[in-house]
Simulated assay, not measured.
Amino acid sequence: MTHTETDPQRPAPATVRSRVRIPLTFPDGYRVEAEVHTFHGLADGAEHLALSLGTPGAEPPLVRLHSECLTGDVFGSDRCDCGPQLRESVERIAEAGGHLLYLRQEGRGIGLYNKLDAYALQDAGLDTYQANTALGLPEDGRDYTAAAQMLTTLGVDAVRLLSNNPDKAGQLTALGIEVTERVPTGVHLSPSNVRYLRAKVEHTGHSIPLAGLVG
């Protein structure tokens, strides 16, 4: 989903449902404590989480909108770069101060089973976007209205966005959240995700510097 609105339309506010501190430990041994927020009144009714990390400074907080990826985040799949991006984002946000929004948007919004069906089509030669449309589904069905609500509820109206995806910045801006800077993540390249990353660069303009890394 790509939004092109020029006038910000701030969504109705949400409320904080609960806050709990959780110590996080990653497989490589990195440890950090997060304050995890849950919410009432999110536009899509999903159980999204906001992880507040570190201590914000004078600049707008560093924020990542991370879409849930069971295969990458939990099982370590190399077909995408989601797991390494999550690990990187937590550490960088903890250092700078900010929030990681963990959004329940598996498969760019198409769900887990459909994502696995799309993988089968990718094995037959389609790219990640073509596979979604071949299933009669949107290339990217994500809407970040709930993310804007979460940020507003946390008192955030301007962010430095940790993302390679221009649509995330565009949607947040259209929803009344100022994006002062888009900060790219690292390049998490593997033999299994080259086509996936190339499709994101060529099809949706992700700022991933693949030139020189792959032929």
Results as ranks from 00 to 15, higher is better:
1 M>L: 11
1 M>S: 09
2 T>A: 02
6 T>A: 03
6 T>L: 01
6 T>R: 08
6 T>I: 01
8 P>D: 09
9 Q>E: 07
12 A>H: 05
19 R>P: 04
20 V>Q: 05
25 T>W: 09
26 F>N: 11
26 F>H: 13
27 P>E: 11
29 G>T: 10
33 E>V: 14
33 E>R: 13
35 E>A: 07
40 H>T: 06
44 D>T: 01
45 G>F: 07
50 A>R: 04
51 L>C: 05
52 S>I: 06
53 L>S: 14
53 L>Y: 15
56 P>K: 12
57 G>R: 12
57 G>L: 14
58 A>W: 08
62 L>S: 09
62 L>I: 08
67 S>W: 00
68 E>W: 00
76 G>Q: 02
79 R>P: 10
81 D>Q: 08
85 Q>F: 03
88 E>V: 04
89 S>G: 12
92 R>F: 09
93 I>M: 00
94 A>L: 09
95 E>T: 12
95 E>Q: 12
98 G>R: 01
98 G>E: 07
100 L>S: 03
104 R>S: 01
110 I>M: 12
114 N>F: 15
118 A>E: 14
118 A>Q: 11
118 A>I: 13
119 Y>L: 06
121 L>V: 14
122 Q>Y: 01
124 A>W: 14
125 G>W: 07
125 G>A: 08
126 L>K: 14
126 L>W: 15
127 D>P: 15
128 T>M: 10
129 Y>L: 15
131 A>G: 12
131 A>P: 10
133 T>V: 15
139 E>A: 15
141 G>A: 15
151 L>F: 07
153 T>Y: 08
154 L>P: 01
156 V>K: 05
156 V>Q: 09
158 A>M: 12
158 A>F: 11
159 V>T: 05
159 V>Y: 00
161 L>E: 11
162 L>S: 02
164 N>V: 02
165 N>Q: 04
165 N>C: 02
166 P>W: 11
169 A>K: 03
170 G>P: 06
172 L>S: 07
175 L>T: 05
176 G>Q: 05
176 G>R: 00
176 G>T: 04
178 E>Q: 14
178 E>Y: 10
180 T>H: 08
182 R>F: 09
182 R>P: 01
183 V>H: 13
184 P>A: 04
184 P>H: 02
185 T>G: 01
185 T>K: 09
185 T>D: 00
186 G>D: 03
188 H>A: 02
188 H>Q: 00
192 S>F: 08
192 S>P: 00
193 N>P: 05
195 R>C: 06
195 R>N: 15
196 Y>H: 10
199 A>I: 12
201 V>G: 03
202 E>A: 10
203 H>K: 15
203 H>A: 15
204 T>D: 06
204 T>Y: 05
204 T>K: 04
206 H>R: 13
207 S>E: 06
208 I>P: 01
211 A>M: 09
211 A>K: 13
215 G>N: 12
215 G>E: 12
215 G>V: 08
